[in-house]
Nucleic acid binder design. Structure first.
Length: 253
DNA sequence: AATGTATTCAACCGCGTAAGT
DNA sequence: AACTTACGCGGTTGAATACAT
């Protein structure tokens, strides 16, 4: 493809932004709005790549950004959303007004992630996976769920697998299905499509909501009552229990 | 006070996706 | 349909700062 990486333009500034650069970027965006990041630096008189400008604006200069002091409620929400979505920082940030994906990612990696790691290292023997394990009927343990994910994918749609799909509806899954997938897996159909539910059946019966629906579905009400989710109402075979694996086992009765 | 170590977080990097041609 | 390009994302890095010795 031959795209020129930001870093190859040697005349561009790198590293920390100066107050003057910030001022130039803010005043340009205030006058012309966001977008067209590629041409923005030249027009704004900045020796930065568009990518860098975008990042600086989104993560630091935007007026609606809340900085620091993650509240207890926000922390709880981050933990729950992370349980649900994994490292989808942008999606998680979308549910936390004023917070950026970068901030949440940093917060997780420095604070919550460490706690999680410390906890799992106590639960799991050294050298083994830190994935949470659930006891089986036989007394052995198995992963509570698997999260298989491609990297840096955008989530613009979702696919829900019911536990027992109607045999009449058969649609081939477009995307990558990892062979490692087992029962109760959370997988991500390619491109950027999270798949929730058990896969203890042949892969068929997809529901693909229209663009924009996805964001709407992850709202606070959803965490209070899964049954409120309209995509579940369409499918009578899916019970709340089928999502138990998404939550911390300790919290599930 | 000086030095070493740990932590935080802004910024960079590379890749996947969507949109345009 | 194939190719190109801009954007957006998650992973990672490294400078700045805080803390410990």
């Amino acid at each position: 493809m031959g795209r020129i990486p930001c870093s190859s333009k040697e005349e561009l500034n790198k590293g920390a932004w100066t107050a003057l650069e910030d001022k130039l970027l803010i005043s340009y965006i205030q006058a012309h709005g966001e977008g067209n990041w590629r041409n923005l630096p030249t027009r704004a008189g900045l020796k930065r790549c568009g990518k860098s400008c975008r990042l600086r604006w989104l993560n630091y200069l935007r007026p609606d950004i809340k900085r620091g002091n993650i509240s207890h409620d926000e922390k709880e929400l981050i933990i729950r959303l992370h349980n649900l979505l994994g490292n989808r920082w942008a999606l998680i940030a979308g549910r936390l007004p004023g917070r950026t994906d970068n901030e949440i990612k940093n917060y997780w990696n420095t604070t919550l992630g460490k706690k999680d790691k410390a906890q799992t290292s106590v639960e799991a023997p050294p050298g083994k996976s830190t994935q949470k394990m659930l006891p089986t009927e036989s007394g052995a343990t198995e992963p509570s769920c698997k999260v298989i994910r491609t990297r840096a994918t955008r989530c613009s749609s979702q696919v829900i697998f019911p536990l027992r799909p109607p045999a009449s509806q058969v649609t081939p899954l477009k995307g990558r299905m990892d062979q490692e997938m087992g029962d109760g897996a959370v997988v991500e159909a390619h491109p950027g499509t999270p798949v929730l539910g058990s896969l203890n059946f042949e892969v068929n019966d997809l529901r693909k909501p229209s663009d924009g629906e996805f964001e709407e579905r992850f709202d606070e009400a959803m965490f209070k009552d899964w049954s409120a989710d309209p995509c579940l109402n369409d499918n009578s075979t899916v019970g709340l229990e089928s999502f138990a694996f998404l939550l911390d086992p300790d919290e599930w009765p």
